[in-house]
């Protein structure tokens, strides 16, 4: 390993500072007793207490978690199917259109996805009367659609890197394709499916723009509530909420990183 040049080290330090100073400052200010951001009113945890008493935020959190879990599950099922189709099914008519439709949501600006889905729901409602009300179901469908693309990409790269000989062996030994899928392929790609589910869950929890388009009156997800509050400026209870987010995410990621590192050094 060669030594890093001073320029590289400087940019690295600056870059990480750029990425982390905003997060650190939010956590620090979440303990500020004063309502005004400009003054330090002493250390306090009162904004955390107020957050737990805020029913609007609690309701929205519950709705968001429900949507995230449901859409992540659907996205994992559909995305795994799509990944299998892309890698293991050879060529078929319409495959180009299929992979195009699958990967486009990854790069589509959110405003376009959101607007187009809303217009679809409005049109469907006029034609067939469904969906009667926009909310949980329409947001879940929208999130499933963009999340399944991420799952498919993860599953595809796992399948492509995987040795097909195990599946071939099972086939040669007389296993039906259905059995091969459930007994051999799916267990092998399970880690990719779990990663896909977690990513989908996070993406759903994170989405503001698409949910704002396709939700109806009365169903506000957590990002929508946060957005309506922060539009007016910095508010201390959102600092507390952000700090809780940062704490959960960093704990989870650091633990999984440590576990992964232990496994790789052991092997």
């Amino acid at each position: 390993m060669r030594r890093q040049s001073r320029l590289i080290l400087t940019v690295l330090a600056f870059g990480y500072a750029f990425l982390y100073i905003p997060l650190v400052s939010v956590v620090v200010y979440s303990f500020n007793d004063s309502r005004l951001a400009a003054v330090w009113g002493g250390f306090s945890t009162r904004w955390y207490g107020e957050l737990l008493k805020n029913e609007q935020i609690l309701d929205a959190t519950f709705l968001s978690l429900q949507i995230a879990a449901t859409s992540a599950t659907f996205a994992t099922i559909l995305g795994t199917m799509a990944g299998l189709v892309l890698v293991r099914f050879g060529r078929f008519r319409g495959k180009t259109l299929f992979s195009g439709m699958l990967t486009s949501p990854l790069v589509m600006p959110e405003v376009i996805t959101g607007l187009s889905l809303l217009l679809l729901f409005v049109t469907l409602q006029q034609l067939v009367g469904w969906p009667g009300q926009r909310g949980f179901s329409t947001i879940t469908i929208a999130h499933t659609t963009f999340s399944m693309a991420y799952v498919a990409v993860i599953v595809r790269s796992r399948l492509a890197a995987m040795d097909q000989s195990l599946e071939d062996a099972a086939m040669d030994l007389g296993c039906r394709p259905t059995r091969v899928l459930f007994d051999v392929t799916l267990p092998l790609i399970a880690p990719a499916m779990i990663a896909g589910w977690l990513l989908s869950f996070t993406l759903s929890l994170d989405d503001l723009v698409i949910a704002s388009f396709v939700s109806g009156p009365g169903s506000n997800t957590l990002p929508m509530v946060i957005f309506s509050k922060v539009k007016l400026g910095v508010t201390p209870d959102i600092n507390a909420l952000a700090s809780i987010f940062i704490l959960i995410v960093s704990t989870g990621l650091v633990i999984s990183w440590l576990l992964l590192r232990r496994r790789t050094t052991a092997s």
Partner: peptide, 14 residues
């Protein structure tokens, strides 16, 4: 993995 919205919000405070 941290909310995009909250990260943008953090800049408002800065």
């Amino acid at each position: 993995w941290i909310s995009f919205l909250l990260r943008v919000y953090a800049w408002m405070g800065l």
